Every structure is written in structure tokens, then in C-alpha cells.
Amino acid sequence: MRALDLLHISLADQCLYGFADGQLLLRLPVSTALNGPGELNGSGCTPRGLHRVRAKIGEGLPLGAVLRGRRWTGELWSAELAVRFPERDWILSRILWLSGCEPGRNRLGVVDTFRRYIYLHGTPDSEPMGEPRSHGCIRLRNADLVELFPRVPFNCAVRIEEAACPDWAAAPLN
């Protein structure tokens, strides 16, 4: 599996597109913020612009591992656990923690993506993909995230945009 050098997340398509050397290698459904795009701290929105993967958390954890405060609780997600803790925003399996690259847009001050704890993370399989439902993060299926995780190096570029993915990137994968 080739390492990826760019993740493009389309808010319009609710898809993550993975590229290496300009070639589309991966397409995965995601779920971004129910509140839409936006950068302000406390907005519950998904930040736009250029980001980097600043931290990778959860390597080697089992599928469905429950993470709170970026640490494994020792729990594995289950429907029974969800009933016991209905208020939790489930962060499962792995975390790719983003840091903004554009001062004033998604870096520093009240728009700092890293300080907002914006991640790509796993979510229960009962949660729909392809529609905005998160609190600002980018949710993925656990199996998709576990497949993606080793292909994403530290400092991998992550572009989050409102526009649909360009036609050339939406073409069928080889």
C-alpha cells in the first residue's frame, strides 16, 4: 500500500479522497459537521483550508476501541455501551489530529484547528456516512480508518473544502 501525501475532504461530497503523487488512490465516505463549515472555536463546524496531520493516536488498538481525551478507556464500542452513555460523541479506533496551516483562517487564536481538537476519527457503524452529522470532526467507518491510518504519514497534507471534488478526481479508481 502506497503512502498518501494528500487527503482532500469534500464537504459537498462528504468524501475523503486520498492522493499520492497526484494520483487518486482512495475514496472513502465521511461525515462532517452538522453545523456546516466554519473555523471558530465552539462553533461545532468543520474547519476549511489546508491542514497537516500533527498526531496519530491509536495504532494497534482493536477495532471499536473507545477513546476519550485521546486515550483508550479500555472499552470497546457496543450497542449496550451506547445505551448506557447516550450523551457521548463516540471517538473510536484511531485519531488523526489536525493542525491548521493558515494563520488567521485555521491556525492560532479563536480559529486554531489543533486547539479545537479537530480529528479524523472512527465512529459507530450505526452512524450514517455521506451526510453531515459530526460536532466538527471528520468521522469515518472504523474499518476504513484502520485501513487509512498506516498510509497517512505525520505532516500529511489535508485539504478541507466546501466544493465538490473535481471531475478528474471523481473518476473511477484503477
Rank of each mutant, 00 (worst) to 15 (best):
I57F: 04
S93W: 00
A170T: 10
N41C: 11
S43C: 08
R139Q: 09
R116D: 08
A157H: 08
I95P: 01
G64H: 02
G44D: 05
L63N: 10
S43D: 08
R71S: 04
L148V: 00
G38T: 12
R84I: 03
I57P: 02
E59W: 09
L4E: 05
I118D: 08
P47N: 08
H51M: 04
H135L: 12
D89N: 13
D13T: 12
A170S: 10
W168R: 13
L98C: 08
A157T: 12
G64F: 01
L6F: 00
A33Q: 06
N155D: 12
R68V: 14
E147S: 10
G64M: 02
A65L: 04
V111S: 12
R71H: 05
R52Q: 13
Y119Q: 11
R68M: 11
V152G: 03
E102R: 11
L76Y: 04
L61E: 04
P128N: 03
N142S: 08
L25R: 13
R68P: 07
G74W: 12
C15H: 14
R116I: 11
V53A: 04
C165K: 05
Q23Y: 10
T73S: 06
N142E: 08
E127K: 09
C15Y: 09
A163G: 04
G49L: 06
H135I: 10
A65V: 07
E39M: 13
R27E: 03
L7R: 04
L26A: 03
R107A: 14
P62Q: 06
P37T: 15
F19R: 15
D21N: 15
S93C: 01
Q14C: 09
N41A: 15
I118A: 03
F85S: 05
T46Q: 06
C165T: 12
L61M: 10
F154S: 10
D89V: 14
N106Y: 04
R141N: 10
L145E: 01
E147D: 12
M1K: 13
L26Y: 05
G100V: 11
L148H: 00
E75V: 06
G60R: 08
L16R: 00
G44V: 06
R54K: 14
Q23A: 15
L6N: 06
S31N: 08
A12E: 11
G104A: 13
